[in-house]
Amino acid sequence: MSYREKENLVNIFSGLLITGIYAWIIYQKQLAGQFDLTVNYNKWGEILLVFMGVSIVARIIIYIVFHIINAIATQAEDIPKEDERDKLVKLKSTRNSHYVFSGGFVLGILALAIGMPIYWIFVAFVVSALLSEIVDNASQIYYYRRGI
């Protein structure tokens, strides 16, 4: 398995892990009555902003750990430089990712249109963001393995 494929696998698992843990903590706070996300929409903004910060810091730590482990396991010191194939793979994967995110957002709007509670748009936002990231990384693995 190449460095890029491993990097994308790590991204998928770290995305799932970070989002899962953060969502679980928020859900526990909701159950404990610290806030009510079904009516307090401003809280969603606060939670999502904090999540962005937490996610960036956690990913940096995970990436450093991954790089160290990979360097020890493969005896390779350098990260492969990005060339035209890597850029094309990223471009196509980002396109797929945007389709998923846009689709999720439209589904959220549709949910509002058919009378679902307003907080569903935020749920759709979070879920489509997570799914689009998974699709981005999975697409990269797919293109690296199957060719473009």
Binding site: R4, P80, D83, E84, R85, D86, Y144, G147
Partner: peptide, 13 residues
Amino acid sequence: VSRQTIVAIEKEK
């Protein structure tokens, strides 16, 4: 380019 890109070109991927 990277070695992986040469591998992909040779394999016609």
